[in-house]
Design a protein around this nucleic acid. Sequence first.
DNA 1: CTGGACGAAATCGTCGGACACTTTTACGAC
DNA 2: GTCGTAAAAGTGTCCGACGATTTCGTCCAG
Lengths: 251, 251
Amino acid sequence: MATTAQDRPDRNIAPADEDAGIAFAALETSGPDGASAADKVAETIIRGIRSGAFVPGQHLVEHDLTRRLGISRGSLREALKHLAAAGIVTLNRFRGAYISTLDRKSVLDLLQTLEPLCRLAAHLAAQHCDSDEKACELQEAAALVEESHRQRNRAEYLEMRRQFYFTLVDIGGNRELERVMPLSRTDLFRAQIEVIQTEKQRQLHASGYGKIARAVASRDPRAAERAVQKHFANTRKTISELPEHAFPSSV
Amino acid sequence: MATTAQDRPDRNIAPADEDAGIAFAALETSGPDGASAADKVAETIIRGIRSGAFVPGQHLVEHDLTRRLGISRGSLREALKHLAAAGIVTLNRFRGAYISTLDRKSVLDLLQTLEPLCRLAAHLAAQHCDSDEKACELQEAAALVEESHRQRNRAEYLEMRRQFYFTLVDIGGNRELERVMPLSRTDLFRAQIEVIQTEKQRQLHASGYGKIARAVASRDPRAAERAVQKHFANTRKTISELPEHAFPSSV
DNA sequence: CTGGACGAAATCGTCGGACACTTTTACGAC
DNA sequence: GTCGTAAAAGTGTCCGACGATTTCGTCCAG
C-alpha cells in the first residue's frame, strides 16, 4: 500500500525551517479550561490544519511541538494518539506522526461514508425542529458559514462549517451521530481543496448549507435529505473537476 | 520480536483462558503492524468487556490496571484516551475512567446511526463481490458467528460478529467505513443484553448474519441492504421487548 | 568512482518518579 | 445526626532516563 519511495513531502512541506516558525506564532492554546492539556493540543493542531499552518504530509516532530506548545511529551503523545484515532494524523512506528493525506479515492470514500450520516442528521433535525428557535439557530449557523465565505476567511469558514453540522446533529438529538461523524477528517481535504477550487465551486459549496438549513426548517425530512444529497452531489462534481495534483499520492 | 520481561502481562484480570487462537489478520492497511503497548491494552479491555470481566459503569483505577497489566501509567492513559474517543469508556476529569453505560435511548441512537453505515457496507460488498472467493469468505465468517452462537461462547460470538462486519467492510473496499463504524461500541450493549435476551431472540440475531452474507453473495445490492434493514429491525424489536432493568440508568 | 558496511545522530516507545490539583472519605466537634 | 476539616485516594501533568529503531553521513574495499 505504501508507495515506492519513502515519504517525500518535499512538495507539501515548506522546506524553509523558519517558515514553520511563523506558523506556530499564532498557535496559542486557547480553549475551555475544562479540557485537558492534550485536548487543547489536539484542538490547536486541528485549527492549524484549517488555517493552513499544517499541511497534509507534514512531519510532526515531538520535540518541536513540545517546545513550541509548551507542554510535555506525554501530553503531546496523548493528543497525537487521539488525532490518529480520528484519522487526522497517521503514526508510523519509530518514524513519527504525519498529517494525514487524502488521495482522490479516500476523499470519495469519505464522502460516501459521510453522506448517509448527514442525511440521517438532516432527517432527524427536520423531525425535531418543532420549535422555531432551533430552526433559527440552524439558519444562523448557515448564515455564518456564508459570511465567512464572503470574507475569504478559510479557517473561520471551516470552523463555521463544522459548527453548522454540529448544530444540525444537536437538533436531531442523536448523540451517537456526533461521535461517529468524521467532521475533523473532512477538514483535511477541505483545507486542501479550498485553495485550488474555482470561485464558482466555492460559491456553490457555501450556498449548500443555507439550502439544507431551509429544508430542515420546512420540517420536511424528505426534503432535508434531498438537500443533503444534492450538496454531496455538488461536492463530488467539484472533486471530479479538480486536477490530479490537488491530491498527494503518498498515504 | 523477543518479548522482554516487561511487556508480559502474566495473566489478564479475567479467566480469559487461552482463546488466542484467533490471530486475526487485521491491520494490514495501517502498514507497520507493530501494535504498541497502549493498543494491546485497549484490545485487552475490549476483550474484557466482551467476556464480561468488565461491566458497564465499572471504575477503572489507573494504579490497579497498571499493576495487573504490567504497563506504565503513560501507556495506560494512552489506551484509555483511545477507548474514550471510541466511546467505550467515559473519562471524568479528576474522577477517572468508567466503562461506558448505554441506556435505552443511547442504544437506539447507536442502532440508528449504525444502520445506514451497515447498509452502505452491504451495498458496496454486493457490488464488489465479483470473485467467489470473497463471497465464500463472508459466508464463512457468518458460519463462524453461528457456530459460536451454538457453543454459547459469548466472548467469541461477539468477536466473530465483529469479524463478520470487518469482512463485509473489507469486501466493499471503502476504507473510511472501517474507521467510522462504531463496532466496539456495539460490543458494549451486546455484552449487556446477551445474558438477558431470550433464546429465541439470540437465535434470531445469530441467523441474521447468514442472511446478510447470502444476500451479498447474490450480488444484489438492494437485497443486501434489505437484509441489513431486516436485521436491524429485528434487533430493535428485541430491544423493545427487553425489561427496563437491562439498561443502567446512569450515563 | 561506486557500493556496501559501519557507526553516530535523530527520533520514537516505554518506564518510573515527582508534584499539583481535585475528589472522596474519615473523623472529630457541636 | 449534621457539619466542617483533615487525611487519603486518585487523577493531570511534567521531567528525566533508557532501550529500540530509523536515518544519514562516513569510510573502506573493490
